[in-house]
Nucleic acid binder design. Sequence first.
DNA 1: TGCTATAAGCACGCTGGCGTACAGAGCCTT
DNA 2: AAGGCTCTGTACGCCAGCGTGCTTATAGCA
Lengths: 237, 237
Amino acid sequence: MSSTIVGKDLEGNRLLSALPPDAYERLRPHLEPINFTLGEVVYESGGHMRYVYFPTTSHVSLLYTMIDGSTAEMGLVGQEGVVGIALFMGGETTPNRAMVQGGGEAFRMKSAAMLDEFKRGGEFQHLLLRYTQALITQISQTAVCNRLHSVEQRLCRWLLMTHDLAQTDELQMTHEFISNMLGVRREGVTVAARRLQDMGMISYVRGHIQILDRIKLLDHVCECYQVVKDENSRLLG
Amino acid sequence: MSSTIVGKDLEGNRLLSALPPDAYERLRPHLEPINFTLGEVVYESGGHMRYVYFPTTSHVSLLYTMIDGSTAEMGLVGQEGVVGIALFMGGETTPNRAMVQGGGEAFRMKSAAMLDEFKRGGEFQHLLLRYTQALITQISQTAVCNRLHSVEQRLCRWLLMTHDLAQTDELQMTHEFISNMLGVRREGVTVAARRLQDMGMISYVRGHIQILDRIKLLDHVCECYQVVKDENSRLLG
DNA sequence: TGCTATAAGCACGCTGGCGTACAGAGCCTT
DNA sequence: AAGGCTCTGTACGCCAGCGTGCTTATAGCA
């Protein structure tokens, strides 16, 4: 299996690239490069985790689905993190759905290998726990943001976060899709997006959103964006 | 210091009581019983953690404060958990404020002792991580609940959660206090509380709320309450 | 080239929660 | 017993976001 990653480096994922040489060598044979396609469901809520995933150029949404089918995003995982923290935290199943929100590459690792290395208790464990702490901050901030800020502000935040993870200024997503992330109606997104477009921050047509002016977006977003970003860099360097 | 806990048992806190004998003996000398008074601030956001706390008859709110001063609760810690997870997760400071929401007893332990035992990687670590996973579920659910449910439903949920942690049917808290937890206006709480009172679920006067009919409350609450409760018992037995 | 499915625009009434302002009610102090 | 402070009740206009229903544009496919 290690031959499959010849020519690929692990640098794309910040957790993997921060590993000390010995851990790096131990994990290397267990890492398998894969391709995530947009909209792919990585984990279903309550499902078992055969693998954990380290995104490099892709990113993955952590979603919560209500009984009535309405959904909301609670966190976003990109190259700074790993999908499947519940595994090493000791929950046997994932509490939420995980869905690919930006297609691209990732590494996957069998759950058993992940657990083995985690239990060694070294730098790998330390990195994973710090990352989990950062994710908790993200989720907490989302809780408060959902309570206190407008759709328009939350859309700005969401666009900025996504833009940070994507390698491009053109995001592929419909208003419908975004509405499921923000937990609002599709029309609500349309109205908010239109205003951002009128203000020259973005432009869009049928599922293609162009980020035109990040500065203006930053000017318009609620404090939550920066708080999460700062905490991320504090914890993950 | 171990003499201070003669006559006290650690059973009150479920994490401590689940410890295997050897870990129990190691930790025992480091545990110090304390009394939490209502409204006491355990951690300030961004502050250092000299101690971590294991509530027994008390419970503690994890709060997030916005720049403009508005607050919202993201989680609630009682006898099933520990206040200060950021310590062993590897963040040097707490990302949020922690405030005593129900006065009573708890054990505290110096950060260094906590970290030493955590790093042994045994059952204690395992318990703490599972608890953290349960807390993450609670925070996530709060995020979604904040987005999708009414003040009245959220008040029911909050009353039920608090009632579970308190040992009594009489909760000591004003509408003002609750409004800071739910992240709404005081008037909003008054209106919702009045309706619950009219329906015979609770009664209250000046800072004393009596839980009259849990069944009715359960009938009125959103799904979020049960989801968190189920996940808690799944993870923490 | 035209058809069809999907994405986005728009309109209308409704309601939950907000901001604000003030009035009564219970408790504590002096 | 009086006065003051804190807690709760209520009211009013306002607006964001919802639910619903329908129209218009665009892209991809036949």
